[in-house]
Amino acid sequence: MTMPELAVWRVEALRITVFGVEPLAAAGQNWWRTVTGQEPETAINRPQSGEYSEIGPFLGGQLELKVAFNRADWILSYPLIGLPGAPEPSGTLVSTLREFAFSVSKWTAEKPVAASRVALGSVGYVQVENIKAGNEIVGLYIPYMDLTKVSDLTDLLIQLNTPYESKLLGSARINNVTKWAVLGRQVFAIGPTGMPQIKNDIAVRSEFDLSTATDGASVDLSSFGALSSEMIDAVEGVLSAGLKL
């Protein structure tokens, strides 16, 4: 068995997070429009709790800006991907992640906040024939764990952090958390009669969460474009060749 090709991985969700040095004031700042070039469909402001959100379509999915206290999350999701007629990105997981990060970098280039940390994440999946095949695929991505000897293993969930030194940030540590799971899913699809039908399948799910270290120096958001590119290279490297210690 070989690793799935990059083009096979489907996108569930992508995320970029910025932690401000101080509380963030997003209302009326047009951050969503800066990233997308459009107006959001919905904007919700809760000043008493320090929460603000904007939501609308983007890159074939749904983009949500969520701001709470000093944290801003940009979340691009494809909740119905894989179902007939459901919207989905035009590119691969990695190419969509690069396009998403490029769009958010329009916002960070304006340096609207002083940032203490940044993070980038992705959730993807690939369908497999059965649980045994899924376990074997996870074993290919984590070569120092032999999962072929436990073929009857079910409900597999593994989390690892394999940090690396950033060339861009002067060898500062970047946390590289990955989660791997083999799971059974139930999804609803519209059948030929127009009635919803339940479909069962098995999938390998990969989740990446890369972030600058909590004990590191503050992050200059003007360099976010290059930093996010370095992080995405790490994601692509793992999905192409597996984890390395």
Rank of each mutant, 00 (worst) to 15 (best):
P89I: 08
N70W: 05
F58L: 02
V67E: 05
F69C: 15
F100M: 07
T92N: 07
N70V: 12
A68V: 10
Q62E: 04
A86P: 01
A101F: 05
A86F: 00
R71G: 10
W107F: 14
Q62G: 09
Q62K: 05
E99N: 14
S103N: 02
E88P: 02
L63W: 09
P84V: 10
L93S: 07
P57N: 02
E64Q: 13
G56C: 08
F102I: 14
G60S: 09
K106L: 09
E64F: 10
A72F: 00
V67Y: 02
L76Q: 04
F58E: 03
F69E: 15
E54G: 06
A86C: 03
E54T: 10
T92G: 11
K106F: 11
S116P: 03
P84C: 15
E110L: 15
A68Q: 11
S103P: 00
P112F: 12
G60M: 04
G60C: 10
W74F: 06
L63A: 12
K106V: 06
S53Y: 05
L80D: 14
V104P: 08
S105P: 04
S49K: 04
S95Q: 04
S116F: 11
P84F: 06
S90A: 12
I55C: 05
A68T: 06
L83H: 01
G60D: 04
K111Q: 12
P89L: 14
I81K: 13
P79T: 10
A109W: 01
E99C: 11
S53K: 00
G85L: 01
S49Q: 09
L97I: 10
V67T: 06
P84S: 07
L93M: 15
V67W: 00
W107C: 04
F58I: 02
V104M: 06
E64M: 12
G50L: 02
P89G: 13
P57Q: 01
A68M: 09
D73G: 04
Y78A: 11
E88S: 12
G82Y: 00
V94W: 13
G85P: 01
V113K: 03
P112S: 06
S103W: 00
V113D: 10
F100Q: 05
I75T: 13
A114W: 07
A72C: 07
S77E: 03
S116D: 08
L83Q: 10
S77V: 15
G60I: 05
G61Y: 11
I81D: 15
V104N: 07
E88H: 05
L59I: 13
P87R: 11
W74I: 01
R98S: 11
S105A: 15
W74R: 02
T96M: 04
G85K: 02
W74K: 00
S105E: 01
L63D: 11
E110K: 15
R117S: 14
V113G: 06
I81A: 15
F58A: 08
K66S: 15
V94N: 11
L65Y: 12
V104I: 13
L63G: 15
P87E: 09
I75F: 09
D73C: 05
A115T: 09
L83K: 03
F102Q: 13
P89R: 06
S49W: 02
P57D: 08
G85M: 02
E110V: 15
G60N: 02
L97G: 15
T96N: 05
K111W: 06
I55P: 00
E88N: 08
P57R: 02
S116Q: 07
G60A: 07
E64Y: 04
P112M: 13
P87V: 14
I55F: 08
